[in-house]
């Protein structure tokens, strides 16, 4: 591939897995995003990968809405309208076993997996995530806060002592 190298494609593929939760949908979403990108041939794009991630995200959520299985995401978004006072949130102090993470991976919401990707793989700050997702920084911090709680709750429910600390 001439315009995207193998590493970038693999990064986008992994982002797709984080977004959709599985390999097949990731491939479909990436395929559609690249096709749309190439057909539109947008000019003055400095961050091609970020632009393609946005196409992938929009396409995936559109597909979910069509399927009407976007209920969880919509409900979660409604909570985000609440004003939550969080000044600083970070996931960095969470310790987790990879097996444990893999076990709970599919039960996380799409937006939570996406947040993990942006925060843990791309090492984006809350501000950078808010820029990419085009939402307020406070919302990102609130999401991180809830994700942290969620991961802790999952570990407790599972009875796995000390899986998260």
């Amino acid at each position: 591939m001439t315009f995207l190298d193998k590493d970038t494609l693999n990064q986008l593929y992994r982002f797709g897995i984080a977004l959709t939760g599985n390999e097949q949908d990731s491939q479909d979403v990436l395929h559609t995003a690249i096709e749309r990108f190439l057909r539109n041939k947008p000019q003055k794009i400095n961050q091609q990968a970020a632009y393609i991630r946005t196409i992938m995200r929009n396409y995936w959520y559109d597909e979910l809405r069509k399927l009407k299985t976007h209920r969880d995401h919509v409900e979660a978004s409604q909570f985000e309208q609440e004003i939550i006072s969080i000044h600083s949130q970070s996931l960095e102090d969470i310790m987790i076993d990879q097996q444990e993470l893999q076990k709970h991976w599919s039960s996380l919401q799409d937006s939570q997996r996406e947040l993990l990707y942006l925060h843990c793989v791309l090492e984006y700050t809350a501000q950078e995530i808010s820029d990419e997702l085009n939402c307020p920084r406070g919302t990102v911090l609130a999401r991180i806060h809830r994700l942290k709680k969620h991961l802790e709750k999952m570990a407790q429910t599972n009875g796995s002592q000390g899986a998260l600390s």
Binding site: Q98, C120, V121, E123, S165
Partner: peptide
């Protein structure tokens, strides 16, 4: 083995 979440997520996706 417990690892920082950043590392676990990277290892999982890699």
């Amino acid at each position: 083995m417990k690892k920082p979440i950043n590392q676990s997520v990277n290892d999982l996706l890699n």
